[in-house]
Every structure is written in C-alpha cells, then in structure tokens.
Amino acid sequence: MQKEASFVKIIKEHEGVIFKITTMYTDYRDDQKDLYQDIVYQLWKSFDSFRSESKISTWMYRVALNTALTRLKKSKRMGNSVPIDQVILKQTENYDPEFEERLKIVYKHVKELNVIEKGLMLLLLEGKKYEEIAEITGLSPSNVGTKISRIKQKLKKQIIKE
C-alpha cells in the first residue's frame, strides 16, 4: 500500500507532464486517452526499478516519451475520431481563447517535427538543460545540442514560410 500511495502521489504531481506529452504525440482524443493510460501503466511497471539516483521527473519523461514512441509505431486509427481541438480543457475564469489559439500554433509547429525532434523540443520547452535532456533521451549532451540547433533552424523556416 505504501508503494501504491507513493505512486499515486507522484502521478498526481506530474499529471500535467503526461498530459503535455500525450497532446504532443496524438491528434485525437481517444488516442490521447489511450496513450495517457499506457504511460501510467508503464510508469507503474517500472516503478519498482526506479531508483532515486535520477530525478523523478527524469524517469517520468524517459518512460513517457518511450511509451509514446512505441505506441506511435503500433497505432493506426480507424473510423471516426474526435480531433484534439483544445489544449486547455477546463474553461476557468482565466481561460483566454486568444492564448489557446497561440498555444495551438506552438503545437502545430512542434507536431510538424519528426518523432525524436518532437521529444527533444518538448523537453526544451519544459525548460530542461541539455544535460538533463541527454539523461532522459540517452543521447550525449553535445548530440542534444546539435540536434536542438537543427530543430531551431527547422522551426524558423516553418515559421517564416507562414
């Protein structure tokens, strides 16, 4: 029960991270829900092997991104699906449609990148340092730097095109 309680606590603390990853890697609500469940399941599975040598967030990003990539290879959506048309789900009093629109532009640009670049960009937007990105992705910090500068160039081109 102790294990379950600490797992639930961690998931609750980081549910926003899982939400952002699932939104990044899916286009439809059903897929997003499935991926969300898959990530939570994979986190539970690897919870025993998680050692506090690395930060909880590093472990979470690593498992969540791996799950997203694996699922992406397998998934083929059939039939009618509801697209993700809103990033901020709850209409709170602070809800700003204009902000939502700008956010959609961010997602649109990032979604145009390939799967690996998407993951790197997400980590960059999350404010991670190159060293931490390297730890999460298994790339070397210099490789991360090179890839990120390429991504930045790619994004610039995309933005200029519009």
Binding site: E4, F7, V8, I11, K12, E15, G16, F19, K20, Y36, Q37, V40, Y41, W44, V87, I88, L89, K90, T92, N94, F99, R102, L103, V106, H109, L124, L125, E126, G127
Partner: peptide
C-alpha cells in the same frame, strides 16, 4: 514559444483531475 509553454504548464497545474482510484484502475 517557451513563454507560452510555461504559461500553459501553470494553467495545467491548476486543473488537475486525476483521483487515486482513476490512476490505479488505469493501471
């Protein structure tokens, strides 16, 4: 982009909706 992302993260923080039961039943 980073600034927008960070603002979104703050908003997501405020709209947490998972309960203990949902998390464990998902698994």
């Amino acid at each position: 982009m980073k600034a927008l992302w960070s603002e979104m993260s703050d908003q997501l923080e405020q709209q947490k909706k998972l309960t203990n039961e949902i998390i464990m039943s998902m698994t």
